[in-house]
């Protein structure tokens, strides 16, 4: 990943956010049942999508590292894993705020909430283990990332399998065009920002790996 890539992604995110926010608050109709608070949806849902995508990327990269010992895959797994924590924190904080306004309670212990919290905790364990684990703990951490990625389909299908307070997965298709177009427009700055953060973190991780190699070469 080149330096230009993350710069382009972060500049694109910064450029796209103001028109996305303007579209959310000025051009999109207010939802009839929930009212103005439904505007949280336009950033909460894309953030959740990005969280799930980052978790899958981290899990797949960790599996590649386990089987092929690729250091690039290791760096990608760590970078995406940290971004899962960031996006997961955003999802787990904005969701209860929205729930408090619409359901009257921030947390209902429904299957989607619990599986999302589980994903966050698994990746928190992964990040902590990679940062502070003893030598040899890398493989356990990678297995945790794979386990975390396996939780993504559970989050997605939780609303279909169990009775939950969250709407079903086909809710986006039932929205009027003005709302789902805004949703996808709002997705663009969030996705660009998340991809940019993964790219920056990946570059930092690769540089740290090279630095570690240099230290080891100097020791010999």
């Amino acid at each position: 990943m080149s330096r230009a890539l993350w710069a382009i992604l972060l500049v694109a995110a910064a450029a796209l956010f103001p028109p996305a926010a303007a579209r959310v608050f000025l051009d999109t109709p207010i939802e009839r049942e929930m009212g103005t608070v439904q505007k949280i949806f336009y950033f909460h849902v894309p953030m959740a999508w990005c969280m799930m995508l980052a978790a899958v990327v981290s899990g797949v990269a960790a599996a590649v590292w386990l089987f092929r010992a690729s250091r690039a895959a290791e760096a990608l797994a760590r970078a995406s894993g940290e971004v899962v924590l960031v996006t997961g924190a955003c999802v787990l904080l904005t969701g209860p705020i929205w729930g408090h306004a619409t359901w009257g309670t921030p947390w209902t212990w429904d299957a989607r909430q619990v599986s999302t919290a589980l994903l966050f905790l698994v990746f928190a364990a992964f990040v902590l283990l990679r940062a502070y684990g003893a030598a040899g703990s890398e493989r356990l951490a990678a297995a945790l990332a794979v386990f975390g990625a396996l939780d993504v389909p559970i989050i997605y299908y939780a609303v279909k399998v169990w009775k939950t307070t969250h709407p079903t997965t086909d809710v986006v298709g039932t929205l009027p065009p003005s709302m789902w177009r805004t949703l996808f427009f709002a997705l663009s700055p969030i996705a660009a920002c998340v991809a940019g953060l993964v790219a920056v973190r990946y570059q930092v991780e690769r540089a740290e790996q090279r630095l570690d190699d240099l230290y080891l070469a100097n020791e010999r």
Binding site: T36, V37, K39, I40, F43, C90, T94, A101, R201, V204
Partner: peptide, 27 residues
């Protein structure tokens, strides 16, 4: 209801971008 909704929106967006800003600072 509208005032309460706006308060919730400000909290949600404020927290969301604060988390991202903290991570950028960490990086």
């Amino acid at each position: 209801k509208t005032a309460s909704d706006y308060a919730h929106i400000v909290w949600a967006y404020g927290i969301l971008w604060s988390v991202v800003a903290l991570y950028v600072l960490y990086l």
